[in-house]
Amino acid sequence: MSSRTRSMFAAVCAVALLGAGCGTTSTNAGAAGGGPDPAEVCGGPGEEYTIGVSQANVAEPYRVRMNADIRRAAAEVEQFDEVQFLDAAQDNSRQVSQIRTLITKRVDLLIVSPNEAAPLTGVVGRAYNSGIPVILLDRKVNGDSYSTFIGADNERIGRKAGEYLAEHLLPEGGEIVELRGLSGSTPAAERGRGFRAGIEGSGIEIIATADGQWLRAEARSKMAAMLKAHPRIDAVYGHNDPMAEGAHLAARTAGRAEGTKFVGIDGLPTPSGGIKAVRQGRLSATFVYPTGGAEAITAAKRILIDCESVPRKRTLPTQLVTRENAAEVYRRLNSR
């Protein structure tokens, strides 16, 4: 959008704000504390917009699917002229540099899935306070310098995973290992904290944990080491499906997959995703964790085109997937 057009629309929007025409992009957008001015960022349906997407990595199938969902939804909005995807490859410094470049380019809106919270907080705040709306997707930063966060409730999912293990897979208790996501990412902390609440008082003991960095190969290596150190492992809790699958591969190689339970999170409805792994018996359960890609584009449209407010937080629904409902969930998610 040209600066002249922005200024003209800002004048119109300023008048409309006295009525009900132009909303705010977040609870504090345009306020004294900083953040985008809704009158400046919303150009209406007559303009074209560039969106920058800063992705933590594309080594995870979940993030590949997220980008695909963003791309598919953006293609249905004719005003979204360009969507620029950048891959941080799990490198905080690289992601900071990439976001700085997007700020310099003055993209109209940023969608960010931070690699880790603390290292990305400053540059996300810089973008937001420079007047660029920021949608945080799946992972958070510290503080509140963003327009909206979209993601599922990771702590609740972790708790449900713990409860399912305690009530259905190991009702008599047992010894389990946990493969955690990247230590500085908010879902890792939340999924771990929730899980511990879910198994509390159950007789289940976490005998070892390891950081699998959300990656199948890394988790397989860490699981191989834990199998050597622990002659008994009754179950594995992986913070995502690729790590749970990596653990299963390691256990199968060691001849110890039989009788061991594997639980993951993501539930991608793809041929190599977690739902198929449940159907085929490699995982005992997973939890659908929506990518939020389509919802992020809906929020971007409301901010840039419709001049409407968006909530500071949108919590996406999830679902437990077991052998009993895996086929139905797979069909339903692929019929959308």
Rank of each mutant, 00 (worst) to 15 (best):
G194S: 04
A294D: 15
G198W: 14
L333M: 13
P61K: 08
I103R: 05
G34S: 05
S3A: 15
A189R: 11
C42M: 08
V123I: 11
V288T: 06
H168T: 10
E116G: 09
G143F: 01
T322S: 11
R4P: 00
A225V: 13
I305H: 05
A250S: 03
V58W: 01
G264Y: 03
I176M: 12
G131E: 11
R252W: 09
P119Q: 03
R336C: 13
A10H: 10
R220S: 15
T253N: 13
F262S: 12
V134Y: 01
W214C: 04
R196M: 06
R216K: 05
R193N: 04
L227R: 04
E76Q: 11
W214G: 11
Q98A: 12
E190L: 12
W214K: 05
H168G: 02
T25R: 00
E155C: 00
T291L: 01
E76W: 13
G173R: 08
Q90W: 09
V310G: 07
A251C: 11
V141R: 10
G21F: 04
G125Q: 02
D241M: 03
D91E: 07
A118Y: 06
A257E: 15
N334H: 06
A89F: 02
V58H: 03
S183L: 13
K228E: 14
S309H: 00
L227S: 08
D91T: 10
E60T: 12
G292K: 00
S130A: 15
S113W: 00
L179F: 08
L320Y: 02
G122Y: 01
E258Y: 13
A161N: 01
D234F: 06
V83S: 02
L316H: 03
